[in-house]
Amino acid sequence: MLLQKFVENDVLSSLRDMQRLQQQLNRLLSAGGWPAAEEFPPVNVWASENGAVVRSEIPGIEPSDVEISLVNNTLTIKGSRKAEELKNGQRCHRQERGYGEFTRSLQLPFGVDADNVQARFSNGVLQITLPRAEADKPRKIGVKAE
């Protein structure tokens, strides 16, 4: 009897543990705060009928160190971020910032007017404006009554 009770308790408490774990997991996932390693640099895209604006956070690089190319409506951002050079006798206490090479490609869901693509870089944020090609824009077709 005693043993049975003990086993029951044990099963119940492990069930409770499981439940707690599941709750914690759900909370983590729903909060969206999952600290997963992501592609670098992260991009945000704003879109409208007339095109898209792509912004990307790439702090700590010079504008001349970014290479942007557009091939068949695929935008590629390429570059590298250099590590801070340690001078003689300098020690590192904390290093959270990454460095190295990066490449990001984004396929755009519309035909891009490649001649009018603009890119600017300010305060570590790259902004690329991609207008939609005139030929690719939706056109209204009027129906004539006969």
Partner: peptide, 22 residues
């Protein structure tokens, strides 16, 4: 902000990534 901290003999150097901040 992601931060690096370096120490040398006469100073501490702190680098913080704050994209979008001027």
């Amino acid at each position: 902000p992601r931060t690096d901290i370096y120490e040398s003999q006469d100073h501490l150097l702190l680098l913080a990534d704050m994209p979008g901040v001027g």
